[in-house]
């Protein structure tokens, strides 16, 4: 899969067919930003293994979250979910995939890029947003925003800063995916309904940022006519004509005409997006009460994390200044 610049998505333009794009695992991306004192919506680099080698031409404080690809800086391991200081001329590399699939790199102060329609997310269809509207390629140079040097660590080598994410909701990867019932659920025949709720579904190899195709026993709609196109969403589970399912992911189209059996709840999109080809999931229906409560808990957790990290960063900066004086 491709590596690209993303934030939490571009909203307000779906009426024009402009899809929101954004990070696959928005929660992990938000955590990365929190750890380095950024706003949660700051642009990050979404990385898939094998990932790039990144030479830092200036010092930076960074954080890596989501998938653990055994990152190193000049051969020293970089832990995930902790901020680290990388000095000028040091190189970040990703050695081997330990778990999960979407890795996020946040840089304190953010990436110096021009917003397109209020967002830094890369829209590959429109060739706009992010880094010249395209995936990242070898030899690209991404400028960093101001605010890198305020720690005054210029003479220091790589070091891990003393705070981390402890309570990390979403780090677990259970197979169960909670779903809100979709408008065309009742198009399925009874046997297919049972299969949907009982059978395992496997992430198929032709899955990408647009959608995860699932492999399982085919399901059947009971002789209904074609559906007239209407809006779809990140997490919409559609029934394809061959009886297989696709779950629409971050780069999904704005509208679709396949029957919508359900929608993965917002909080479970993170765990879903982190699955790899061949991994299995099970669907279970839930209600709005449950889905909303989980989502609100996650948002509150992020707010607390953001405030706590900002405070730690301030104190740390202060200590370093005193040491240097």
């Amino acid at each position: 899969m491709l590596d690209s610049i993303q934030d939490l998505g571009r909203f307000g333009y779906q009426q024009f067919g402009i899809n929101p794009t954004g990070c696959m695992d928005k929660y992990a991306a938000s955590v990365a930003n929190c750890l380095v004192g950024n706003d949660v919506n700051e642009a990050v680099i979404e990385i898939h293994f094998p990932g790039p080698s990144i030479l830092f031409e200036e010092p930076a404080i960074i954080a890596i979250t989501g998938a653990d690809f055994n990152a190193t800086v000049n051969r020293k391991p970089v832990p995930i979910n902790k901020p680290v200081f990388v000095n000028k001329n040091e190189t970040l590399q990703f050695q081997s995939p330990k778990n999960k699939s979407q890795c996020y790199l946040a840089v304190k102060g953010g990436l110096h890029l021009k917003k397109w329609l209020n967002s830094l997310s890369t829209n590959l269809k429109a060739e706009a947003g992010g880094f010249y509207g395209r995936r990242l390629l070898k030899d690209d140079v991404i400028e960093l925003n101001e605010g890198q040097h305020d720690l005054n660590l210029r003479e220091e080598a790589f070091r891990v800063l003393p705070w981390q994410v402890n309570e990390y909701i979403g780090v677990d990867l259970p197979k169960e995916i909670l779903v809100i019932e979709g408008s065309e659920w009742n198009w399925l025949d009874d046997l297919s309904k049972k299969k949907f709720l009982k059978n395992p579904f496997f992430i198929s190899h032709n899955s990408d940022r647009m959608g995860f195709r699932l492999a399982s026993e085919p399901l059947q709609a009971s002789g209904k006519t074609e559906l007239i196109s209407s809006a779809v969403s990140f997490g919409t589970i559609q029934l394809l004509p061959d009886g297989q399912l696709i779950i629409l992911m971050a780069d999904h189209q704005t509208t679709g005409g396949y029957p919508r059996l359900g929608n993965v709840i917002s909080v479970h999109l993170s765990r879903l997006s982190q699955l790899k080809t061949g991994e299995e999931i099970h669907f279970k229906f839930t209600d709005h009460q449950t889905a909303e409560t989980l989502l609100i808990k996650q948002q509150q957790h992020l707010l607390q994390l953001q405030n706590a990290c900002k405070l730690r960063l301030e104190n740390y900066t202060h200590e370093i200044r005193n040491e240097n004086d």
């Binding site: 809100i180 019932e181 979709g182 408008s183 209407s230 809006a231 779809v232 969403s233 997490g235 919409t236 919508r260 929608n263 993965v264 709840i265 917002s266 709005h288 889905a291 909303e292 989502l295």
Partner: peptide, 10 residues
């Protein structure tokens, strides 16, 4: 509903 953050007027 279209998931937990959207509603369809159909």
């Amino acid at each position: 509903p279209l998931g937990d953050n959207a509603i369809v007027i159909d």
